[in-house]
Amino acid sequence: MNVTILENARELGREAAKLCSRELQRCIEEQGGARLLLSTGASQFETLASLITKDIDWSKVEMFHLDEYVHLSQEHPASFRKYLKERFVDLLPVPLHRAHFVNGEGDLGQQIAALTSEIRKAPIDLALIGIGENAHIAFNDPPADFNTREAYMIVNLDDRCKQQQVGEGWFASLEEVPSQAITMTVHQILQSKMIVSCVPHKVKARAIKDMFTHGVTNQVPATILKTHPNYTLFIDEQSASEADRALLAATE
């Protein structure tokens, strides 16, 4: 596990994008293409904005994403499909080789089966995995299911997760947040060859503290990321503010 602490979200995004760019370029050079997994939310703004400026042959990149609300239209401001199209896919200088979006509308069983078939064709080379205010990864809220071997599943969202969505401005009230989502499972996330987490902002400070002060536990889902053999965590001074600096220094 590698930990890098930057001054603020902008610097974090810039440095994380450099690392991700190098890895994507390496994969393209060595194997002819790369499979990229993206997360969403306010914590990913700066990283994605910097990543799209990099000199990458995006026509050789296949993109997947982590999760989507159930029964939420793609036109809704909170839709993660909308987020990724507007903040990443549509801004690239050349189209991606392919983009696989999680669709929470229609026949959910069929949607999950199709995604599972695609993602299991080959490993994900690089996964950008955010960490929520309740330490969730994707929409695997505590207590997260560490045992399922499914690739995607339907989950119920807890109130703290819903409150984060309101706090970030995606919904006007807790009641407007959908109660369920389709999420990539913890098991499937861990199959990625390289995982990078970009976690800026003060609201994530408790989650980062809990990640470092607890052993691996499904009550703090992000703790499972510490077991991955190629994991890098980018945090800023604000998100690192409650963590024991000695613990952080031991992993830098």
Rank of each mutant, 00 (worst) to 15 (best):
R120N: 15
A246W: 03
N156M: 13
K121F: 10
L51M: 09
Q31E: 06
G109N: 15
S21E: 10
P95A: 02
E68I: 06
C198S: 11
D244K: 00
Q219H: 08
E30C: 05
M194K: 14
V3E: 10
A42H: 13
I131H: 03
E242C: 05
L38S: 02
Q110V: 14
P95K: 00
G104P: 11
L66H: 12
G109C: 14
A246Y: 06
A9Y: 04
E237N: 11
S73G: 09
A240M: 08
R245E: 08
T116H: 11
A9E: 12
Y231R: 02
T227S: 01
F88D: 02
I28L: 05
E30G: 02
Q191G: 00
A250F: 09
Q219N: 00
L92K: 05
Q25F: 07
P200Q: 07
G106Q: 13
A138D: 09
L51F: 07
T227Y: 04
V199C: 14
K54Y: 12
I235F: 08
L72Y: 09
Q164M: 14
D236I: 04
L96F: 02
V203C: 13
P142A: 08
R10E: 12
E105K: 13
S179A: 15
E105L: 15
A78N: 11
T116A: 12
A17Q: 02
M63D: 02
L19N: 06
E7G: 11
V166A: 09
H228G: 04
L174A: 06
S43I: 07
V177L: 11
H65Q: 12
E86Y: 02
E68A: 13
L66N: 09
C20V: 13
G130C: 07
P77C: 05
H214Y: 03
Q111M: 14
A246Q: 12
Q44M: 14
D141T: 10
P221G: 08
N147W: 08
T223W: 07
F139A: 13
Q238I: 04
P77H: 06
K85P: 01
A205D: 04
D55S: 13
A122T: 08
G13V: 06
S239D: 03
R206N: 09
F64H: 06
G132A: 10
I131G: 03
I137A: 04
V196K: 01
A9R: 13
I52G: 11
P95H: 03
D236Q: 03
Q165G: 09
D125S: 00
I154A: 13
F146V: 05
L115G: 08
K54D: 12
R206Q: 06
R81D: 12
G109K: 15
S179C: 05
